[in-house]
Design a protein around this nucleic acid. Structure first.
Lengths: 243, 243
DNA sequence: TACGTTAATTTGTAATACAAATATAAAATA
DNA sequence: TATTTTATATTTGTATTACAAATTAACGTA
C-alpha cells in the first residue's frame, strides 16, 4: 500500500536545494554579487546537513552561477553572467557535442559560412571606431610569429569573437561564441606551421580591411576562401593519415 | 619566503578531481555508459575523502556528464550527450543570458529571422518523409485547443526543433536549440489566448506546407510575417503596460 | 601613527556512521 | 520443481563532528 500522495521527492536533496537556489537566481530574487547565506545557515533553513548543502553549491559552481571565497567576508556569491562568463558553458557543451556526435567539418563549415557572413554584413554596417581598434590589436598579435601555437589559437578565437561583437547584436554574438568554439579543432590543426598561420592571418587582414571599408561582400568572399582553404587542409591531412 | 615552485594547486580539490574526470570523458578515455569506479575507490585513487569525491561528482552531474544509481549494479555512469541531453545546458545558459543581459527582442528577432530562414532553405531541400511526418504530429498537437499554455509552449519548441533537425545539419541544429530557447519568453506571452495561439499555429501550418512543397521562399516569407506579428504583440503589451 | 599579532569567521577537507535503494543469491513455500 | 519471499551484500545518499586553511577585523604595542 503505497499511499504517498502529492509530488514525490524523487531527486536527491542536494539537487532539490540546487534547483531552488538556481530558481532564485533566475527569477532575480538573488541578484548578481549578492551573498548567499553561509553554509551553516543554509543547512538550517533547508533542514539538511552541511555536506548536502555543499554538494548543492558545487552543482551551481559547476554551472558558473556562483563563486566562493573563504574568510570572514567570504561566502558564496552570485556571478554576473555576461557573454564571457557564460562562454565556459558553451565551450564545454560545444566541444562535447562536436567530439561526441560525429559532426562533420562540412556541417560546421556550412553553418559558419552562413552565420559569420551575416556577422560581416552587420559588422560592416554598425562597426564603431572602437571595434576597428580592437580588431586591429587582435590581428597584430596574431601576426606575431613568436607566439606559441596555443596563443595563436587563443588570438584566433579573440579575433572572431571581436567580429561577432562588432555586429552589435548580443544574441547573435552569444550564439557565435558557441560556433567559434566548435571550430577550435580546425584552428589547432594549422597553429603549428608558420606557412598556414601566415595564410590565415593574411586572410584575416583582408577581412579586417574589408570590414573597415564597410565592404561586406568582399569580406564574405574572403571568408568563403578561408573556409575552402581549411577544408582542403583537412582533406589533405586525412589523406596523408591514411597512407 | 614563498618558495612554491611549479604549477600551484590553487583551485579546490573537488574541482581538480572534477576537471580530471571531465578531461577523461572529453578525450574518450571514459566512453558513454562506462561505469566510473565507486566513490570509495575514487577516494583512494585520488587520495581524498569521499565527501570531496562526491562534490566533484556533483559538479559533473550538474553538467549532465554523469548520472548515478544506487545499489549493487549502481554507481556513476557517463552520459551519452546528444542534442537533447545537452539541451538542458543551453536552456539554462540561454535563458540566463537573455534575462540578465537586456537582450532586446529586436536582436533576437533579427537573429532568428536570419538563422531560421537558413534552416528553412536547408529543410526544404533535404527534408525526408520522416521529417514531414514528425512535423505533422507536432503541428496537430499544437492545434489542439485543449492543451494547457505550458503544453502549448512545449509543443512550439518541439515544432521549431523538428524544423531545425530537418535541415540535417547537426551543427546548425545544435545552435538553433539555443536560439529557440531564447524565444520562450515571447512564446509564453501568446500561450494564454486562443486568438493568438490560433494565429501562430495557422502560420506554422502554412510553413509546414511550404516546406513540404519544398518552397523555401514562401516559408521564409511566412516566418517574416510571424516575427513581425510577435514584435507587434510585444509592442502592444509594452504600451498597455505603461498605461 | 604604523605595524605586527591575535582572534573570529567562513569555506575546504576528512573521518565515520548509518539510511535507502537495489540486485543477487538463498530459502521457504506451494 | 517452480515460484515467491526473504535475507544479504553493495553502492550511493545523508548526517554528524572535527579540524585545517584562508582571510578579515580588531587589538595591542612600538
Amino acid at each position: 500500500m503505497n499511499l504517498e500522495i502529492g509530488p514525490i521527492n524523487k531527486s536527491s536533496l542536494s539537487k532539490q536545494v540546487a534547483d531552488q537556489l538556481q530558481e532564485a537566481i533566475l527569477e532575480g530574487t538573488l541578484k548578481a554579487d549578492d551573498r548567499l547565506p553561509t553554509e551553516d545557515e543554509l543547512a538550517q533553513r533547508f533542514q539538511v546537513s552541511r555536506p548536502t548543502i555543499r554538494e548543492a553549491l558545487k552543482r551551481l559552481a559547476a554551472k558558473n552561477l556562483i563563486r566562493s571565497r573563504r574568510g570572514p567576508t567570504g561566502g558564496s556569491f552570485v556571478n554576473h553572467l555576461g557573454k564571457n562568463e557564460l562562454s565556459e558553458h558553451l565551450t564545454t557543451a560545444s566541444t562535447l557535442f562536436v567530439s561526441m556526435n560525429q559532426v562533420s567539418l562540412d556541417e560546421i563549415s556550412a553553418t559558419r559560412l552562413e552565420m559569420e557572413s551575416y556577422c560581416f554584413r552587420l559588422a560592416s554596417q554598425h562597426r564603431t571606431d572602437e571595434d576597428v581598434e580592437l580588431l586591429k590589436q587582435h590581428l597584430t598579435h596574431q601576426k606575431n610569429r613568436n607566439i606559441s601555437p596555443e596563443e595563436f589559437c587563443a588570438a584566433d578565437v579573440r579575433f572572431h569573437r571581436a567580429i561577432a561583437d562588432a555586429s552589435h547584436n548580443k544574441m547573435l554574438s552569444f550564439i557565435m561564441y558557441t560556433l567559434i568554439e566548435a571550430l577550435q579543432p580546425v584552428s589547432n590543426m594549422i597553429a603549428y606551421r608558420f606557412r598556414e598561420r601566415d595564410i590565415i592571418t593574411s586572410q584575416h587582414e583582408r577581412i579586417f580591411n574589408a570590414i573597415h571599408d564597410q565592404d561586406a561582400n568582399l569580406a564574405c568572399a574572403i571568408l568563403a576562401e578561408q573556409i575552402d582553404y581549411l577544408q582542403q587542409l583537412h582533406e589533405d591531412a586525412r589523406a596523408s593519415h591514411q597512407a
